Simulated scan of single mutants.
Amino acid sequence: MSYLKGYAVYQWLAGCLLLLLTGCSLGESKFLAGDLGGVNHTSAGINYFSVNGYGGPNISPYGSRGGMCCAMLPRHWQPGLKLKVEWETDPDPYARLKRKPSGYGPDEVAYVKHKANYQQHSVIVDLPPYEDRLCALEVHFLPCNQVKVSTSCWAYPSPNSPIKEPLEMKEPAVCPK
C-alpha cells in the first residue's frame, strides 16, 4: 500500500513539474541559442573572446574551438543587427617562460613581463542573415585584427562554409585602414 501511495505522489510531482515547464515555454521565445565557436587564422593565440558578452573559448594559433554554450541572438534576423566582438591576443603564445628556482611553475616576473604583451581588441560587425534556426555562431579572427562572423550550419572548413579564407594567413607588412 505504501509503495502505491509513494508512486502516486511521485507521479503527481512529476506532473506538476511538467506543467511548470510547459507553462514556461508557452509563447515563442524572443531569442535563439546556438554554440559559440571560433577559428583563428593568425599566428597569435586567442586567450579569450566574447560576442555581446557571451564568452567563447581560447584558441591556439591557426586553430579552432567550438561548443561553448551559448550565444543568444534575436529569433528573427533583421538588417542592421550588430555584434560586439572582444578578444585578447598573445602575440607569442609559445614563449618559453623562465622557471622558478624550485623548477615548479613559471617565474612570476617572467610571466608578468610576458603578459604585458597581451593585446585587447574590440570591433563591431554585422550579424549575417539566418533563418529562424541557429546552429552556431562562428567567429573568425583574421590578420590585422579583422573579424568575420558566420551563422551557417556549415562549420569551417566545410566547402559549404561562407568563410573561405585559408586557415594559416600571414600578417601583412602594413594593415589596411
Rank of each mutant, 00 (worst) to 15 (best):
V9D: 11
L13C: 12
G15R: 02
G15S: 13
G15W: 12
C16M: 13
L19K: 00
L19H: 01
L19M: 14
L19T: 09
L19V: 15
L20S: 08
T22D: 06
C24F: 10
L26C: 07
G27M: 08
S29W: 00
F31P: 01
L32Y: 02
A33L: 09
D35W: 03
G37Y: 05
G37E: 11
V39S: 09
H41Y: 12
H41Q: 11
S43V: 06
S43K: 12
G45L: 08
I46W: 05
F49N: 05
F49K: 01
G53P: 07
Y54K: 04
Y54R: 04
P57S: 14
S60F: 12
S60D: 05
Y62S: 07
S64G: 14
S64H: 06
R65Y: 09
G67S: 09
C69N: 08
C69G: 05
A71F: 09
A71H: 03
L73N: 04
P74K: 04
P74F: 05
R75A: 13
R75I: 00
H76D: 13
H76R: 11
H76P: 00
W77I: 03
Q78K: 15
P79Y: 02
L81G: 02
K82H: 04
K84W: 05
V85P: 13
E86K: 12
T89M: 08
D90Q: 04
D90K: 00
D92W: 03
D92E: 12
P93Q: 07
A95V: 12
R96P: 00
L97E: 05
L97F: 09
K98G: 07
K98E: 15
R99A: 15
Y104H: 10
P106K: 02
D107F: 08
E108I: 07
E108G: 02
A110C: 13
Y111K: 08
Y111D: 06
V112S: 12
K113P: 01
K113G: 03
H114R: 01
Q119Y: 00
S122K: 10
V123P: 05
L127V: 06
E131W: 00
E131P: 00
E131V: 03
R133E: 15
L134W: 02
A136L: 07
E138Q: 14
V139W: 03
C144A: 12
V147N: 11
V147G: 10
K148W: 01
K148C: 02
W154H: 15
W154V: 00
A155D: 09
A155L: 13
P157R: 03
N160S: 13
N160Y: 14
N160Q: 14
P162R: 04
I163F: 05
I163A: 09
K164P: 09
P166R: 02
E168M: 15
M169P: 04
M169D: 06
K170S: 14
K170N: 11
K170V: 12
K170Q: 13
E171F: 02
P172E: 06
A173E: 15
V174A: 14
V174D: 10
C175D: 07
C175P: 03
P176M: 05
P176C: 07
